[in-house]
Design a protein around this nucleic acid. Structure first.
Lengths: 214, 214
DNA sequence: ATGGAAATTGACTGTCTGGTCAACTTCTTT
DNA sequence: AAAGAAGTTGACCAGACAGTCAATTTCCAT
């Protein structure tokens, strides 16, 4: 039973690096330092192992949106949400990549989850945003598209890290790059919604807090 | 010779839908309504066909940045750039997906292009942004990360259309959804940089213009 | 201690894949 | 019209793949 979690972790990395079809059971087995037959003992088929990896990832995603509540301060809540997503991009890049590849190819295994759980959650949180707009706390925006753009900006730091490193002329993104990214995204969104903090303090506070919990 | 372009177009779709490893030469052949051996006659191997597809895509990408020049009006230039990227997401979704999958898996075929051509182009355009900041035309921002976020937001409309459609509760994104997306991204970036147009006019103008050329 | 369930594994297999090739047809040039 | 180049294709192959299975070991409740 302890093997299960270990296999999922190794499979996540291999699926992220090679895609579903490109990943082979032998390769995953090699990464997990276990015989291939052992993987089949625990998960049956490759697709079922892949689903286990995806489900393991999904539990992370939805909870990030919790800080977005009607009573919360929009600037603080959105900054916290963005910071949480950025932290995941940094700490769980493989998870993000597996998820991205799944969406890229039409979400064959995740379609139902998207249409039910995710859709419901976004509808709920979009209502919160609409409320903020109605109370003139933030500038008008189509809430769902706001989420689309936030997801895009935060996950790009995991999914396309190769491109970023190449453009920046470095081998690998470091803590400083993620910090700059977090700041850039938060500033863009908060100012874009007309709720930029007066000075630099508020964003810096969130950054520091994030650094402590990471 | 006329077959070459046709094969590349069909291969682009199959690679986008199934990934490099998941796409098979037989499937591409079937999509192109040609015998498999004919594909090998023109391209030799699967990897070479894949490279041909990628090169075909790359010619599109870099040229979009042309409107960004020192003399240009920042608001107009950035809006035009974003609109152009969004138009590509709408018109060439498969191209974007192939490119995204290539980056996701570490850019094995594109590494050199990223480190040379793309890096040079971004360095050049980042200098333009720095100039705008120095002249106080836009708020301070790390130019490379600005590009990262713009790429992320615009390409997400091609790469993750499945997720968006699911969240919006529709089958497929339509022209209106892309228009809303374009407006959302342009507003977010322009206001985020402190250069939002006075009224709604300027953004609407760009949208109309975009609709005409698309 | 013991018996049955759970876990482990090396050896095996049917299928599918990218790629080859020789035979054949169609173009192009003179 | 002739002949060589370019294009086309069905049949074939070696290797890699996911999945199977019987034999064995480890675990644990009694």
């Amino acid at each position: 039973m302890a093997h299960r979690a270990h296999i999922i972790a190794c499979a996540e990395r291999i699926f992220a690096e090679h895609g579903f079809a490109g990943a082979t059971m032998s390769r995953i087995a090699e990464a997990a330092a276990l015989p291939k037959a052992n993987l089949h003992y625990y998960f049956g088929t490759k697709v079922l192992l892949y689903r286990a990896v995806l489900e393991n990832i999904l539990t992370l995603w939805l909870d990030d949106m919790d800080p977005i509540t009607p009573e919360a301060d929009p600037a603080a809540a959105l900054a916290a949400y963005i910071a949480a997503k950025m932290a995941h991009s940094r700490n769980r890049p493989h998870a993000s990549k597996v998820f991205a590849a799944e969406l890229l190819h039409g979400a064959p295994e995740l379609g139902t989850y998207l249409r039910l759980d995710l859709r419901r959650k976004v509808a709920e949180k979009s209502a919160v945003i609409e409320g903020w707009i109605a109370r003139r706390l933030i500038a008008p925006v189509e809430p769902r598209h706001l989420f689309f753009t936030i997801w895009a900006m935060t996950q790009t730091y995991a999914d396309f890290d190769t491109q970023m490193a190449a453009v920046l002329g470095i081998d690998k993104l470091d803590a400083g790059d993620y910090a700059t990214g977090t700041e850039t995204v938060i500033r863009l969104v908060l100012r874009g919604l007309g709720i930029a903090p007066a000075g630099e303090t508020e964003v810096s506070d969130i950054m520091t807090q994030q650094r402590r919990t990471a």
